[in-house]
Design a protein around this nucleic acid. Sequence first.
DNA 1: ACCTGAACACCGTTCAAGT
DNA 2: ACCTGAACACCGTTCAAGT
Lengths: 203, 203
Amino acid sequence: MNDVVKPYHHGDLRRVLLQTALDMLGEDQGWQFTLRELARRAGVSHAAPYKHFTDKAALLAELAVQGFDRLEDALLAARLPDAPLREEFIAMCLAYVRFGTSNANLYRLMFSIDARSAKDPQLDARSNASFDALVDLIARGQAAGWLRARDAHGQAVACWTQLHGLTLLTADGLLALKWPGSDPAAVALAGLLDGLEEPLFRA
Amino acid sequence: MNDVVKPYHHGDLRRVLLQTALDMLGEDQGWQFTLRELARRAGVSHAAPYKHFTDKAALLAELAVQGFDRLEDALLAARLPDAPLREEFIAMCLAYVRFGTSNANLYRLMFSIDARSAKDPQLDARSNASFDALVDLIARGQAAGWLRARDAHGQAVACWTQLHGLTLLTADGLLALKWPGSDPAAVALAGLLDGLEEPLFRA
DNA sequence: ACCTGAACACCGTTCAAGT
DNA sequence: ACCTGAACACCGTTCAAGT
């Protein structure tokens, strides 16, 4: 009979650390959790994480990668294959904002300097992939005749910047506080949609 | 004859601390400077700042207030009283993005949780004033017949979220890195403009 | 191979004491 | 009234040593 329920070798410490960190991000305090508290919650010494991550920035970068994976899952889950492309587009935009506001700390971490200072190539790959999917969706909208045929990259930039700003300001409570009654997301998304459907102002 | 060039009472320490902090924000490292280094640069003990600011968050909030003041100055300087309203609007949008990207650390600080955790009423007043100016500008555009008469708050939200997202992503180098040759600001602003000029999609 | 404990150089904050 | 110096409870990171 083996009494060593938790052996000296934690076994799966790397995954446990990441999961615990994600749990901590789900709480209120912001995304600047400390490595020492993370180790404490994982029931391990504060030096143990350094056997699995070169430093704190590397851990944050890994969390950011997982954040982009989850964002992609949320967007895929919001697809409406049987609906008109326009409806699907709106649904995915709303899913983007909702992901960011429901996982505010994780979303902020995904774009934070600290996470990106690790220069994790996976992180760039993930955010590029998300953006390419957006370009593709817009290109399909153009092919279907719903969107005007303009530079899809430019339209994707306009779309992404709008969603990003809307997500952050909503997450920070700077929009809801000003107009408690309205749904700023819907209003702002409406403006975004027109910007894509109507001719681009010549730059 | 008085040898005490720098007397025991620094005299104007509060202002010196704020100015030194702004200088530090102008450097590269990000906006998370330390209070102790700030005191060091000001040539004062690390406990001295606590006689002028209740804690670090209060100092950050004060810096954020000054940031909004400077942003307002930059927007006022970008006005084109003799040009059509549409040109002026574009100029001010570009001025907004340029302020944020030229003062990236200060801009990030202005919207950071740490600065807002002080709950400085001045900070809310400043950001509300900037937003109200935007609403006013849009309302004038509607009155002049250039913008469609829709809810000005909603249009201002769409405008502000677009500018905010564009500013942050540009400051983080996430747009320039992808398309080094283009000017994403101009493209995204073009989309924004159409969103305001063309009818809003019903939410 | 994986983890610990002590150590180092830092923080933010407080407080008695100095001028 | 304004500032200092020592102190406290924390960090992130390193490294010899343990199993």
